[in-house]
């Protein structure tokens, strides 16, 4: 990256809820510092001023769901030195990938009176299915401190410090009583990547700290043993139908979760 010039940052949106890019604006204490360190060259949620590429860093939110977007991501890749996907939509297809398990034409007819006006692909797919991605940040939504860490690391040409261990490890560190062991509450913590509770005032895994089971919004951890978790839940009386729903959430199309849900869908 040129040292005499501020690096150019771009933020792009595909099918999504806007929450991950909102995380940047939610960095109330760091926003003005960030704006001082980089040239915000393209960030439509925040500014009407746009600067032409190429961009040093592109943050991409959302999944690919239309023929037009499948072309747009190619252009973005061509104008970006580094491309980082942020959030469950961009890294795994998002909640809208639930269509991937059904017939999208039927879905269109349920929601829209004039399906012929709607242009959509059969599947909602992650950005990495379309272009080379330099780094993926998981989470629905991403954690803003992890997002700052990724931007900071990339600007300083080092690897981001975003561990891939499980939510369970975070509960143990914070001294949160295991909701599954103590209360029999189903929890996706053993197979879900940590990160939801990084930084801030209430550091640690969030859901178990609020007395509910993790619902997997940060996606699969590295080497998740999904089969073992399913077996435990089955022994505790969970139906196959319920198992499918548990794995089929905000990261339904992430490979490890997808395979496990399909194994219980008969």
């Amino acid at each position: 990256m040129a040292r005499n010039k501020k690096p150019k940052l771009a933020v792009w949106k595909f099918a999504s809820c806007d929450g991950c890019q909102l995380s940047l604006l939610d960095c109330e204490d760091e926003l003005l510092t960030l704006a001082g360190a980089v040239d915000i060259a393209y960030f439509l949620e925040a500014t009407r001023a746009t600067v032409k590429g190429p961009y040093d860093l592109s943050l991409v939110e959302g999944s690919i769901t239309t023929p037009h977007d499948a072309e747009r991501i190619q252009q973005i890749r061509r104008t970006s030195k580094l491309l980082v996907t942020i959030g469950a939509c961009a890294t795994a297809g998002g909640i809208q990938s639930l269509r991937n398990f059904k017939d999208v034409r039927e879905f269109t007819a349920i929601v829209y009176a004039q399906p012929k006006y709607i242009e959509t692909l059969n599947k909602s797919t992650p950005i990495s299915d379309h272009v080379l991605v330099d780094f993926e940040l998981q989470g629905c939504p991403v954690n803003k401190y992890q997002l700052m860490e990724v931007v900071n690391a990339i600007l300083h040409e080092r690897k981001p410090n975003t561990p891939r261990h499980s939510v369970c490890t975070e509960c143990k560190r914070r001294g949160i009583v295991c909701v599954m062991v103590a209360e029999g509450t189903p929890c996706l913590g053993p197979i879900t990547q940590m990160g939801c509770g990084v930084g801030g005032e209430y550091s640690g895994a969030i859901c178990p700290a609020y007395d509910r089971g993790c619902y997997g919004c940060f996606g699969p951890k590295e080497t998740p043993n999904t089969r073992s978790l399913s077996r435990w839940w089955t022994e505790h009386g969970m139906s196959e139908q319920e198992l499918v729903r548990k794995f089929r959430g905000f990261n339904a199309f992430a490979e490890a979760f997808r395979k496990e849900s399909e194994a219980h869908e008969k």
């Binding site: 239309t66 909640i95 639930l98 059904k102 039927e106 269109t108 929601v111 829209y112 619902y215």
Partner: peptide
């Protein structure tokens, strides 16, 4: 904004999942 079909994929989900989805 591309359609995401929430009203369609909510079918067959549990009542308790509606707030988070």
């Amino acid at each position: 904004e591309p359609p995401r079909f929430f009203e369609a994929f909510m079918r067959g989900r549990k009542y308790s999942e509606a707030p988070d989805i």
